[in-house]
Design a protein around this nucleic acid. Structure first.
Lengths: 199, 199
DNA sequence: TATTTCAGCTTACACTTGTACGCTAATTTA
DNA sequence: TAAATTAGCGTACAAGTGTAAGCTGAAATA
């Protein structure tokens, strides 16, 4: 096996090992370099061949999670364009996402309010990206000013993420209830924003 | 000084010391018993005379922060009853609260998505209490079913807390903007819920 | 083929952590 | 006053941490 190839593979092992450690009980700041190395099957000091810090690994993980989030958005868009109702389809897709990518989403949630400014900013960037896309989408669907659309999008994203956080620690049944509730709440916002748009 | 009195005082020192350590960079799970003891001016082992665990201290801190939150609610109610506009007054009061009690609010925010199930549940209880009170209040002001009022209250609380999180790391100017935004978003929800109430 | 590069290893060190154990001195109780 | 209680302390230990230093063997390069 080529050297490059091997290195890339080990790096991937480290990343996967780290994600596997980020369950309900561990945050980024609570996993140690040695622990990650152990889970990745390498010596502690070999870690440095791939990342300067454990913080550098952390930022990489946030980026990866953000990537997954963007894939989610793309999927939701596709489903909507092939005839789904906007709110229902979006929420359903989101709920599927956090089921399939629990640790990635948990990472984003936790580090959003976490102890590292760098991590918080990294997560915020992902969320803002999410919000911007939604703003743009709203503008194509409702007759609203940009600023109203942005307010609406921001509120919606916050509610959806907040519902996602709840769903993350619920079983399938409860999760469906949460989904139904947030859908209704999103409709409140949609109607309300529309109201303020009219002269 | 009486023994009881002295003990209560030391306990308070421990609690204050812990709060002072919970700044932007530290979460409950990241402060060590020894650190708290050091900051409180006692020997590490003396800590055990007051708390079984550092987790027991953590729950105490969450309770204290929740208490502060309830005081905030009472103050908002008073201001509204003496003639303030509901949404504006509530948001303004909330923003004052997180300015004056930054570390307490930060604790609630962090542990809400934190690594300890016990802490998450403790915080959730406080937020639910908040939501219930708001639901009740909405019912006295708007003509809505209980379930619609509850949906509305839940959405509002989530947006306010979310805005609080943002405000926590902003200066006074930005904080005011955040306040203005969330006020508008709350009006969306209010209008939207009202819409769905009509036959 | 001879040389250089470098991913991964072992060893080592100085720290920090939680907490068990037993002592002291002052307050409380009898 | 004599005895009991107890808040707080000092010492000690095992376990974990990050990371510096230097080695090895195989792949890449010349």
């Amino acid at each position: 096996m080529s050297r490059q190839e091997q290195k890339r593979k080990t790096r991937e092992n480290i990343i996967n090992a780290a994600f596997s450690l980020l369950d309900e009980q561990r945050s980024l700041s609570a996993i140690s370099l040695r622990e990650v190395a152990r889970a990745a099957g390498i010596a502690p000091t070999s870690f440095y061949r791939h990342f300067k810090d454990i913080d550098e690994l952390g930022l990489t993980l946030v980026d990866e999670a953000g990537l997954a989030l963007r894939q989610l958005m793309r999927q939701a868009r596709l489903r909507i364009e092939s005839g789904g109702r906007v709110i229902d389809t979006s929420v359903d897709t989101f709920m599927e996402f956090i089921t399939a990518n629990a640790n990635e989403f948990r990472l984003l949630l936790r580090e959003h309010t976490g102890t590292s400014m760098a991590f918080r900013k990294a997560v915020l960037r992902e969320i803002q990206h999410f919000t911007e896309e939604l703003t743009h989408y709203i503008l194509t669907r409702q007759k609203l000013s940009t600023s109203l659309a942005n307010l609406q999008a921001e509120a919606m994203v916050k509610l959806v993420f907040s519902a996602g956080a709840e769903a993350l620690e619920s079983d399938a049944h409860k999760r469906q209830q949460i989904g139904a509730r947030v859908k209704q709440q999103l409709r409140f916002i949609q109607r309300g924003a529309q109201f303020y748009a009219e002269p």
